[in-house]
Deep mutational scan, measured.
Amino acid sequence: SASLEDVKTAVLGLLVILQTKLYTLPASHATRVYEMLVSHIQLHYKHSYTLPIASSIRLQAFDFLLLLRADSLHRLGLPNKDGVVRFSPYCVCDYMEPERGSEKKTSGPLSPPTGPPGPAPAGPAVRLGSVPYSLLFRVLLQCLKQESDWKVLKLVLGRLPESLRYKVLIFTSPCSVDQLCSALCSMLSGPKTLERLRGAPEGF
Rank of each mutant, 00 (worst) to 15 (best):
S163H: 07
L18R: 01
E97I: 08
A70E: 02
G115L: 12
A125N: 14
L22W: 03
P109A: 13
C185Y: 07
S111K: 12
P26R: 02
H47E: 09
V177Y: 04
E195F: 06
S182K: 08
L144P: 01
R32C: 04
P132N: 07
H47V: 06
L141C: 07
G77N: 02
L194K: 06
M36V: 08
I170D: 03
L197P: 02
V131T: 06
T9P: 02
L194D: 04
Y133N: 03
G158H: 12
V84H: 10
L194N: 06
I17G: 01
M187A: 03
V168D: 07
S28T: 10
Y49K: 01
R75N: 05
C91K: 03
Q142N: 13
G83W: 04
E162W: 07
L180S: 02
Y90M: 06
V131E: 03
S28A: 12
S189T: 14
S39V: 07
V33L: 07
T20K: 09
G108D: 10
S102K: 09
L78A: 09
G190E: 13
E202Y: 09
K151L: 11
V139H: 02
L169P: 04
H47G: 08
K167S: 06
E162A: 09
P109R: 10
Y90L: 05
H40K: 00
H29S: 05
L68M: 15
Q146L: 10
T9G: 06
T114C: 14
S55N: 10
H47S: 11
Y166R: 05
R58L: 01
H44L: 01
C93W: 04
P117A: 15
A54E: 01
L4S: 08
R138A: 10
L140A: 06
G83F: 04
T20I: 09
V16L: 12
V38I: 08
T9D: 06
S28R: 09
S55R: 08
C185M: 08
R86G: 06
Q142G: 07
P116C: 15
A183P: 01
S3M: 10
T114N: 15
L184Y: 00
T106G: 13
S186Q: 15
P79H: 05
G115I: 14
L164I: 05
A125Q: 15
S148W: 15
V84T: 11
C175G: 07
G101Y: 14
L4Q: 13
P109G: 14
L128P: 14
D149V: 03
